[in-house]
Amino acid sequence: MKNIDVIATDLRFPEGPAFTSDGTLWCVEQEGESLFWLKPDGTQGRIHVGTGSRPNGLYIDDLDRLWFCDSGLHAIRCISYPGQEPEIVVDQVDGERLSWPNDLTFDTEGNMIFTCPGSPDKDEPGYICVCSAVGEVKKISESLFYPNGLAFLPNARTLVVAETHRKRIWTGRWDSTGLNWINPTVWAETGSDGFGPDGLTLGPDNLLYAAIYGGSCLQVYKPIGTLSDTIKLPGENPSNCAFDPTGRLGLVVTETQKGQLLRIME
Rank of each mutant, 00 (worst) to 15 (best):
F152I: 07
I47F: 11
K138M: 07
E96C: 00
C116E: 12
A210I: 04
S34Y: 09
S216H: 09
N183K: 12
E266N: 08
N180E: 14
V49F: 13
D107H: 06
V137Q: 00
G259W: 07
V160N: 05
T164W: 08
K138E: 03
G194H: 04
R12Y: 07
G118A: 12
L63T: 08
N180M: 08
G72I: 02
Y209E: 01
G135F: 01
P14V: 12
S228Y: 05
T105R: 12
K138Y: 00
E124V: 10
Q30R: 14
E142G: 01
S216G: 03
M265Q: 14
G95D: 01
C129I: 13
V89A: 07
L58R: 12
G32V: 13
T190H: 01
S71Q: 14
G194D: 03
P101Y: 05
Q219M: 02
T254H: 02
D198F: 01
D61I: 02
S239R: 03
T24R: 09
R65Y: 00
D193K: 06
L218E: 00
Q260G: 04
Q92G: 00
L207G: 00
W26G: 04
S99W: 04
S143F: 08
D62M: 13
E15K: 15
N102T: 03
G57E: 10
G259P: 04
T164Q: 12
D94K: 06
L63S: 13
G45W: 09
L63I: 01
S71A: 04
L153T: 03
K167Q: 13
P204C: 09
A188F: 11
I88S: 07
G191M: 13
G50R: 15
P204R: 14
S119D: 13
G42D: 09
L73P: 00
E136Y: 00
F106S: 08
S143V: 13
V89H: 02
T171R: 14
E96D: 05
V220F: 03
V130Q: 11
L207A: 05
G191I: 02
D121E: 14
L11M: 11
I47W: 05
G83S: 07
V186Y: 07
L73W: 03
P238F: 04
T201L: 05
C129H: 13
S176G: 14
T256R: 10
T190I: 15
N180A: 15
D205C: 12
E236N: 04
M112D: 11
